[in-house]
């Protein structure tokens, strides 16, 4: 088993209450399903959309967001899967795709000492 991070990017936010509730129910169902199959190492956390960016030698502090809305990371989950292609398959069940969002799948680096 290897570990992967799912980074959730973007996703429309201007939806009706009913649509938001449905979206939430889909997320909960998806997470539950991944958990039941033993793929969730850590459900992760949501991230605030705004923050600060500290950059350069001068350590200049700037207001976020640092990317366009469609690229902002809204949260992450730590996933366990056989390999990258299985992790990618798992990500395809994420409801974020219904609202023009994306999942970035990144393997956690492994060290074989």
């Amino acid at each position: 088993m290897s570990e992967f991070v799912f980074l959730y990017r973007g996703g429309a936010r201007d939806r009706s209450p009913e649509q938001m509730q449905q979206m939430m129910q889909k997320w909960m169902a998806w997470m539950k399903d991944l958990g039941a199959k033993g793929h969730i190492k850590d459900r992760g956390q949501p991230l605030e959309r705004a923050g600060k960016l500290v950059e350069g030698r001068q350590k200049i502090v700037m207001d976020g967001p640092f990317a366009e809305a469609k690229d902002v990371v809204g949260g992450y989950t730590l996933i366990e899967a056989e390999d990258l292609s299985e992790a990618v398959e798992l990500s395809k069940g994420c409801p974020i795709f219904e609202v023009e969002g994306a999942v970035e799948v990144r393997p956690v680096m492994k060290f074989n000492m």
Binding site: M31, R43, T77
Partner: peptide
């Protein structure tokens, strides 16, 4: 609602 959606789907 956005907040609820973000927090509840993880927690």
């Amino acid at each position: 609602f956005c907040r609820a959606l973000e927090v509840w789907k993880f927690r």
